[in-house]
Write a protein that binds this DNA or RNA. Structure first.
Length: 806
RNA sequence: GCCGAUGUGGCGGAAUAGGCAGACGCAAGGGACUUAAAAUCCCUCGAUGGCGACAUCGUAUCGGUUCGAGUCCGAUCAUCGGCACCA
């Protein structure tokens, strides 16, 4: 086949006939199949992109052939850091490079032959999209879900700029190599923690990979415990700590504050000031990941102040240590060296007391640090209680004294959405000296991102230097005021794009609720596992907020989720320009065609796992397509119409088994086994062809089914073969074959016979034989090997094996 | 470090609910057809031993549960993804 000509021919025809146009009148049969949208990077589409989009398109075509009205849109997540960095380096404006990249990618995506309905395309960097991103911000603001607070950013003192984590790896600035420090800025947050419980509990009903749900669950990290209040000696200050082990509170020998905690300023004694400040400065240079490492050497310095343990009045030292993270819990922890690994190491290092308050069971090794539950000792009136009961009893008592309470803590933090960058959606807030932070009225949206801005790093958000952007009037009092100079995290843009697609041309609203409630939720969402905890959580959060605001009548955006794996370079590393291991599909497509290429991607890898690129099987796939073509040509030979003989029955059985397993494999994104089944079917048709003297007319039915089964995998070739068979356009309007269960049943099955679990023989029995008959046949088959050993037990697994224990 | 995965022939990968390990394909070797090549078709193809029908071993390592473990449990090692400003 001349692939090139066929691809052009059918892509043109599909476009002309609008084959993929979503028919709004058939919304009751809709199937919303969504791949995570692309980031428009400068590089051309590589093999990895084809791997994301080709198999997903196969799935969409399969659903279409099953009779669904498939909605499969595509768009671009177009704001973000790389375009801005590229601009700083080359002087090419992010808007120019981004729109150019998008145009290139659109052309390339069309060559895959994917069934996108481009009428619904979205680009997040265009005002008619980000207008509504800003609108989303305003809704959250209005309902108390957006707020400002101080938070640290990575800061390079030498470049005088904020750095993304990616640019600050290893605590070193990737532009100049200076040590990265932290700096506090007032920034906007979304209160995702308000939905922590619902985000956690809602996971149960989702058809998502279990590991993804588990990761989200751990990310949200709900733990039940209590808050305990420590007074400070000679001060009105109070230190609140969260603990899941209130049973160990009698063993507290010190209290630790995070270096960032505002309490540190107020509690450090003059004598300790210098040491504490030096320590804080050093801590600001450490990355959070390093700080959380439990193998890292523990360090800390005393503040000079003392806290009073509320259960026994004991005075314990207050220290500052960087293993305590300000953003988790209250930014302060109670130190129980005897019953916590980390505290034990810390106390040993700093020479702090270690005192046992929990004993293990009789005979249990309870050498310190003993971190399991046990029985309380040295704990006053609570001695003798079990840990589980003591936790509650102690917290109840503290509560009655106003010194503690039961509390649920989450690892999840509120979502920081401010970015001190240019290439993003401006935050629609006006800062007025008199009225404070005032939201931009909805009628004034979008707040346009000005094009002429100097975004070379010089210590401030780039927009701050743009006077005509910054200066405005307060919508409340009308006096001069300044706009917020930061832009929104691109994750905000991608948290709601799936809602925009079906109504992407709506100028009056982000979407028409009535329509969106018919089109959503997304039925199948496909994208990388790396999004498990962030994008996929943010999108769920947005959906729940919009439901609570009355815009949506569903509470989960993605009912069913599949992660595709990653195609690595041939060297096993992630494809990247700098490593020089990017695999371009162009040569392969030139040689074998787009269909062979995408078919190979499906056959050569486990879709969910991915793996290093190798093209050793590509030629074989091309041969496979040729083999199918030759079968189509055989359909014009002579046939007989006669009742099925043994050979026909067998071929028909393979045919229906193939339909059954290919359908099932596609439902589960098991493309490689589906292709294998198609190959087996082809082999079976050839075997039939060469073994019977006169082909039965059912041969043609088999080939016809084969072309239909193949169509989602190799769309251009299948469309051509379908035409060759004399069928009417389009193969994608023909129904996918359905398995006839009766045809798949065998009269006899072969079972393995084991003696003492070792394979010894095979035996063939009627399919409907009962256990006794199978047992008898099996014992008979191996009676020579058994000799006169008595049979103790026989295990029969129908359809599989018989195990004789002798 | 923490959270989540993964580990099967020379290679990519199969193996529903614990039941014949290695489907399908690549590579390799042998053969047929051909003046020759290409294409196509047929055979072999985990390791070891044996002329042989066969036997023993074998799913990262060590241990456990079970009539039976690639699959379940425990420990170890290695690799990959995420860790909140890459998206």
């Amino acid at each position: 086949m001349d692939f090139k000509q066929i691809e052009e021919k059918w892509q043109k025809k599909w476009a002309e006939t609008k084959l993929y146009k979503f028919d709004r009148d058939r919304v009751d049969k809709k199937y919303y199949c969504l791949e995570m949208f692309s980031y428009p990077s400068g590089a051309k589409l590589h093999a990895g992109h084809w791997y994301n989009y080709g198999p997903a398109d196969t799935f969409a075509r399969f659903k279409r052939m099953q009779g669904y009205e498939v909605f499969q849109p595509m768009g671009f997540d177009a704001f973000g850091l790389p375009a801005e960095n590229y601009a700083i380096k080359t002087g090419i404006h992010p808007e120019d490079s981004t729109l150019k990249n998008i145009a290139t990618m659109e052309a390339q995506l069309k060559r895959i032959g994917a069934t996108y309905d481009w009428d619904y395309e979205i680009k997040t960097c265009l005002p008619d999209y980000y207008k509504w991103t800003q609108w989303m911000f305003l809704q959250l603001f209005k309902h108390g879900l957006a707020y400002q607070k101080e938070a640290p950013v990575n800061w390079c003192p030498s470049c005088n700029t904020v750095l993304a984590n990616e640019q600050a790896q290893g605590g070193v600035c990737d532009r100049c190599g200076s040590t990265v420090t932290h700096k506090n800025l007032t920034q906007w947050f979304f209160k995702i923690t308000a939905y922590a419980d619902e985000l956690l509990d809602g996971l149960d009903k989702l058809d998502w990979p279990e590991k993804t749900k588990l990761m989200q669950k751990n990310w949200i990290g709900r733990s039940y415990g209590g808050e305990i209040v420590f007074d400070v000696k000679g001060s009105e200050e109070k230190i609140r700590v969260f603990t899941t082990r209130a049973d160990t509170v009698f063993g507290v020998t010190y209290v630790v504050l995070a270096p960032e905690s505002p309490l540190v300023d107020r509690l450090t004694t003059p004598a300790q000031k210098e040491a504490v400040e030096a320590y804080r400065k050093k801590a600001a240079e450490a990355t959070e990941i390093d700080r959380m490492s439990s193998t890292r050497e523990k360090t800390g310095v005393p503040t000079g102040s003392f806290a009073i343990n509320p259960v026994n009045g004991r005075e314990v030292p207050i220290l500052v240590a960087d293993y305590v993270i300000a953003s988790y819990g209250t930014g302060a922890v109670m130190g129980v060296a005897a019953h916590d690994e980390r505290d034990y190491v810390f106390a040993s290092k700093l020479g702090l007391p270690i005192e046992r308050v929990i004993k293990g069971e009789e005979g249990q090794d309870d050498t310190l640090p003993f971190t399991e539950y046990g029985t309380l000792v040295n704990s006053g009136e609570f001695d003798g209680l079990k840990s589980e009961d003591a936790k509650l009893a102690i917290l109840k008592k503290l509560e009655s004294e106003g010194k503690g309470c039961l509390k649920t803590n989450y690892r999840l933090r509120d979502w920081l959405v401010s970015r001190q960058r240019y290439w993003g959606a401006p935050i629609p807030v006006i800062h007025c000296e008199h009225c404070g932070a005032v939201p931009v009225p909805e009628k004034d949206l979008p707040v346009l991102l000005p094009k002429n801005v100097n975004f070379t790093p010089n210590g401030e958000s780039p927009l701050k230097k743009c006077d005509e952007f910054m200066h405005t009037t307060c919508p409340v009092c009308g006096r001069p005021a300044l706009r917020d100079a930061d832009t929104l995290d691109t994750f905000v843009c991608s948290s709601w794009y799936y809602l925009r697609y079906p109504d992407s041309k709506n100028a009056d609203a982000p979407f028409d609720s009535e329509w969106i409630n018919k089109m959503l939720p997304v039925d199948k969402y496909i994208g990388g596992a790396e999004h498990a905890c962030m994008h996929l959580l943010y999108a769920r959060f947005f959906t729940k907020v919009l439901r609570d605001l009355g815009y949506l009548n569903f509470d989960e955006p993605f009912l069913s989720l599949v992660h595709q794996g990653t195609i690595l370079g041939p060297d096993g590393n992630k494809m990247s320009k700098s490593k020089g291991n990017v695999v371009s599909p162009d040569d392969s497509i030139q040689k074998y065609g787009a269909d062979a290429f995408r078919l190979y991607l499906m056959f050569g890898f486990n879709y969910v796992e991915g793996g290093p690129w190798n093209d050793s099987g590509l030629e074989a796939i091309s041969r496979f397509i040729d083999r199918v073509e030759r079968l189509v040509k055989k359909c014009f030979e002579n046939f007989v119409s006669a009742p099925f003989g043994k050979a026909e029955k067998e071929l028909n059985r393979v045919r229906h088994l193939t339909i059954k397993s290919v359908t099932n494999d596609l439902e589960h994104f098991s493309f490689n086994t589906a292709v294998a089944r198609l190959m087996e079917f082809v082999n079976a048709i050839y075997a039939y062809d060469s073994s019977v003297p006169q082909k039965n007319a059912m041969f043609k039915d088999c080939v016809r089914d084969l072309v239909l089964l193949l169509a989602p995998f190799a769309p251009h070739c299948a469309e051509e073969l379908w035409e060759m068979l004399g069928e009417k356009y389009s193969v994608f309007n023909a129904p996918y074959p359905v398995c006839d269960e009766k045809a798949t049943v065998l009269d006899e099955v072969e079972l393995a016979v084991q003696i003492n679990s070792k394979m010894r023989a095979k035996v063939t029995v009627p399919t409907d034989a009962d256990s006794a008959a199978i047992e008898a046949a099996a014992v008979d088959a191996v009676k020579d090997m058994l000799g006169d050993k008595p049979v103790k037990k026989v295990i029969v697994v129908k359809g599989r094996l018989v195990n004789i224990i002798a």
